[in-house]
Amino acid sequence: MFRTATRGTHRATGRAVIDYRGLAAPVGRGVGGVAAIGAVSATAALTGAQSATAQSPSPAAVGAVRSAAPAVAPSVAPAAPQSKFAGVKLRLGARGDAVKHLQRELTADGASLKVDGVFGSKTLQAVKSVQSSAGITVDGVVGPKTWNALAGSSSSSPQSTLRQGDRGAAVRTLQSQLNDSGASLTVDGIFGSRTAQAVRALQSAAGISVDTVVGSKTWNAVYGDVRISEGGGNGDSSGTSVNGQAVINAARSQIGVRYQWGGESPSTGFDCSGLVHYAYNQAGIDLPRKTAKGYVFGGNIIPQSQAQPGDLVAFTGNDYGHMGIYVGGGKIIDASGSRQQVVERSIWGAPHVFVSYR
């Protein structure tokens, strides 16, 4: 029998009707793969005119439902940046820059390979080792999964801030990527003077602070398409001691000589790099004739605090389109296109770097 409604409540007269459509829920997969059933189930059947009641869930069932917290997506660490070769498929017998990059990545991962750009048996063995460790098909073919495995093996490296003197896997990754940008470094995991020089060249080419500290901006440049120089900033300096004052004296002797694009002598006139070529050679330093950009990346890019008279000041605008000879005290001697002659003047506010051949 139905219980009499309590005072203050109302119910319709007549036989009670239970709508089971809202009670029969499909069985689904709950959190953790456990089957979850609707909290309310219909267990009574109608027999004749007998009424049916909808049973409430048991306390245990309620507890189970309450304990099933919504699934929360795990936090995922940012993926390591991909190199420009990540879309290239390589296999035994392949040759070229992509293979060199692969060999450097494998070396950074612990392999001992000669970076010769030839996908031979040793490179094949190292690739298979990486594939096996990553749990992917061990076929020796370098496709997207293998590139991702190599990137993942050094995924912590770009999170590290590196400075000269540091050592380890992150430095090896840095050296490998610098080599892909044009450097010629030994991938030994030691952040020495040559690695520092390549870092400064890269920072300068990327237009970021030239401080030799490899932070987030430098890592982004390392994994970007920034090129530094042929040979990677090894420099053309022969080790000869540069007499800065002799360089300045030679340049000063040409003040007032007309500007001439491509010129490199008092008789023809000078452009900016022609004046550098003339002054250095007059001072006994045998520099080949180059463009301003060629002189930037043929020397050593240094911070202003290390600059000395006779060093070069290169302006980064127009793809390193202009340079002068540093006099000291914030001044340079340069063959000025705007003034159409060789002048001595203060360094202006345009972005610039200092370059040394000492």
Rank of each mutant, 00 (worst) to 15 (best):
Q175S: 10
A35K: 06
N243C: 04
Q131E: 14
S153T: 05
A350T: 12
T9Q: 08
S41V: 14
A221R: 00
G165R: 03
Q341G: 08
D97S: 15
A98V: 12
S346N: 04
M323S: 10
S305H: 03
I255A: 03
G232F: 06
G135H: 14
Q50R: 11
T47Q: 06
E264C: 12
D211T: 02
V27I: 10
S132Q: 15
Q341K: 14
R339Q: 15
L287H: 05
S67H: 02
A279P: 01
V214P: 00
L113A: 11
D97G: 03
A151G: 05
R11W: 01
G224Y: 01
A307M: 02
S265I: 09
V141P: 04
C272S: 08
G63A: 07
A205Q: 13
L23I: 12
R172E: 09
G110R: 06
T195Y: 15
Q55T: 08
D188A: 09
L23P: 03
I285V: 10
V213Y: 00
A35H: 01
K331A: 08
R252G: 14
Y357T: 05
T186Q: 14
A335K: 10
G294N: 06
I208F: 01
I347T: 11
G165T: 03
S112Q: 10
D236L: 15
I301G: 13
V88P: 06
R227M: 07
V247R: 09
D109K: 00
A169C: 12
V247I: 14
Q125M: 11
V257M: 02
E264I: 02
A54R: 02
Q304H: 15
T123I: 06
G28I: 05
Q103H: 10
R289A: 13
R227G: 04
K293W: 04
A73W: 09
V99Y: 13
N220P: 00
Q131P: 02
W219V: 00
P158V: 00
S133N: 12
V27T: 14
